[in-house]
């Protein structure tokens, strides 16, 4: 549970946590990413928006190691990194909530929260008999949920017995618990109703308030404007612009997204 203790970074808001330069990725003839630049600052919620097929998911996957880019470089805390798989990125403190729920419905909440990182008992039971410490995982899960102020029926529930919002909550909490650098979310509220979306947005704020920067992909403009500190607008495999919700309107953002408004540089 030490990850939870990753407390707020110094309030320097211009420090860049994650940076990507000139990322290219093609699938056969389809150029999904056409030299994208990207930067994420400490303590911010950065929204990534764009039309269907603009390359949002692909970009995010290169940042999480799920996709290896054809060219370009990625810097984490100013250091060059090469992720060969999701595990590499996770070891470096990057956690992801995927568009399609990455939970095992038949397992309970603690098992899902600790999936792939289960805690073992101390002493010989753990080292020789590889015994799971179910109690510690249960307590850890309960503590994490309490810290994120996320309401769940019972920590022992099977995930399949949860509502959609609660399930997504488990996936988000898992990312929050183990991320030490940043959390990436690909349309975490796409499948949710209004109330459930509210729950998850609340969670995302809670994560930011703990000092972790968040990358949020969303098609939902009101949500984006409600939550984001900056908005990164993708178009045709490139970054079209980065704007602030304080200085731009939703109409501006949609205009840039669709190409109705041209921007310099990007």
């Amino acid at each position: 549970m030490s990850a939870l203790a990753a407390k707020p970074q110094p309030g320097n808001t211009v420090r860049v946590v994650l940076e990507a330069r000139k990322i290219v990725k093609s699938y056969g003839h389809v150029v999904a990413l056409d030299g994208v630049d990207f930067d994420l600052r400490a303590g911010e919620i950065l929204a990534v928006v764009g039309d269907n097929g603009a390359g949002k998911s692909t970009l995010i996957k290169t940042l999480t190691g799920a996709v290896v880019p054809d060219s370009g470089e990625i810097l984490l805390d100013g250091q060059l990194v090469h992720f060969k798989g999701p595990l590499d990125a996770r070891h470096r403190g990057i956690e992801t909530v995927y568009q399609d729920l990455a939970v095992a419905p038949a397992l309970d909440i603690p098992s899902n929260l600790f999936l792939g990182r289960e805690l073992l008992s101390s002493g010989i039971l753990g080292s020789v008999f590889r015994r799971l410490d179910k109690r510690r995982m249960r307590e850890g899960a309960a503590a994490a949920m309490a810290e994120l102020k996320f309401r769940l029926p019972s920590i022992n529930s099977l995930v399949e017995n949860l509502s959609g919002g609660q399930r997504q909550g488990v996936a988000v909490a898992r990312a929050a618990v183990f991320a030490s650098k940043l959390v990436i979310m690909d349309e975490p509220t796409a499948a949710l109703g209004v109330r459930e979306t509210g729950q998850v947005l609340e969670l995302i704020r809670a994560i930011r308030d703990r000092g972790l920067p968040v990358v949020l992909i969303s098609h939902n403009m009101p949500n984006v404007f409600d939550l984001a500190d900056r908005i990164c607008i993708m178009r045709l495999g490139r970054r079209a612009a980065v704007v602030s919700p304080k200085t731009h309107t939703m109409a501006d953002v949609v205009g840039i997204m669709t190409g109705a408004i041209k921007v310099e540089g990007g």
Partner: peptide, 24 residues
Amino acid sequence: NETRWGRHLYAIGNNPEAARLVGI
């Protein structure tokens, strides 16, 4: 029931993609 190995087995049977994404 009591080891990581078993937990991962259930996860793989239940949702192999999720298992892969968490690094199993």
